[in-house]
């Protein structure tokens, strides 16, 4: 009896676990085009990893879903949101690149073809479990039940017509080694996905090079878009996000080059000031530190060569 009452007391003393709900909102931003904007934050137990933008296009031949979010729970919430928005069936799911916040919601769409670039499929096959494990550590219980679902189909770059939309798929590499970009010629919407971060510092764990990324953004400038939906951060109707990206990438490359030339150590480099021009970019200090981790050893190495 004594033990029993002890247990009841313990149970009563436990805080009530708030229901983990993403509360996703779909905003119609162009004809047939819906944007689901995440927070410009870092992964946390509070936001459940809802720091990513997803989107969907409701074509006459079904819905095309652009990324599935960070967890099974996110994927389910996204699917529910889409099904409350349209009666069109699911037609095609896209994973835009290998990062976990873009494909770990795949389970909720396992009955639909899921397509990605060949290299992205390979990267998810190889790194997916490690990414998922890391996400469990970062956002905790939001991830419950999440397993890696490798995209079932290979997406070939080029133009395809689906349900009244002329969709052009481009394969770039600056952000993660294999980065899909979509331009919808029918609506004028450009989806650069994680090739563009806006008002949220870009991340560099798998970039093949800052200046390569910079050059590839030049290709996006040539596209006659009327609306851009970045992978992270708010939508924008002109070239401002590209300007910010290129200015920031250029600064990063220069500051790391100069630091290496001066013989700075990694911690000294991490402490360098970030120009006020970038004050509007969320998480710039934390992401700059991470970038120094990822890239500075190569910059250091380059100046050792005699």
């Amino acid at each position: 009896m004594k033990y029993l009452s002890g247990w009841i007391l313990l149970w009563l003393a436990l805080p009530v676990q708030a229901a983990l709900e993403y509360d996703l909102q779909a905003e119609q931003v162009a004809r047939n085009t819906w944007f689901v904007e995440g927070k410009t934050e870092d992964f946390s137990q509070e936001n459940g990893g809802n720091i990513v933008n997803t989107a969907f296009i409701v074509t006459a031949e079904g819905v095309i879903v652009l990324d599935t979010g960070v967890s099974k729970r996110y994927g389910e919430a996204l699917r529910q949101l889409i099904e409350s928005t349209t009666d069109q069936p699911m037609r095609l799911i896209i994973n835009t690149h290998q990062h976990p916040d873009h494909f770990l919601g795949n389970q909720a769409f396992a009955d639909v073809p899921i397509a990605a670039l060949e290299q992205t499929r390979e990267q998810i096959r190889r790194n997916g479990d490690a990414f998922a494990e890391n996400m469990y550590r970062l956002v905790g219980d939001w991830m419950r039940g999440t397993d890696v679902v490798v995209p079932s189909q290979t997406l070939t770059p080029g133009i395809i017509d689906i349900g009244g939309h002329r969709l052009e798929w481009l394969a770039l590499s600056g952000h993660s080694g294999a980065d899909l970009v979509l331009f919808d010629h029918t609506t004028g919407v450009l989806f650069p996905f994680d090739m563009v971060f806006y008002q949220r510092a870009l991340t560099t764990p798998h970039t093949p090079g800052l200046m390569q990324w910079h050059q590839e953004l030049e290709q996006l400038r040539a596209i006659p878009f009327t609306l851009m939906l970045p992978g992270h951060g708010p939508r924008v109707e002109d070239g401002r996000a590209l300007d910010q990206m290129q200015a920031y990438l250029e600064w990063l490359d220069r500051v790391l080059t100069d630091a290496a030339e001066q013989g700075l150590s990694m911690t000294e480099t991490m402490a360098l000031p970030i120009p006020a021009t970038f004050d509007s970019i969320a998480l710039r200090r934390a992401e700059f530190e991470r970038t120094v981790f990822h890239l500075y050893p190569d910059y250091e190495q380059a100046v050792f060569e005699p």
């Binding site: 911690t267 530190e289 981790f293």
Partner: peptide, 9 residues
Amino acid sequence: VDVPAFAED
């Protein structure tokens, strides 16, 4: 003793 805010690697 200077260390990063987080041990990324």
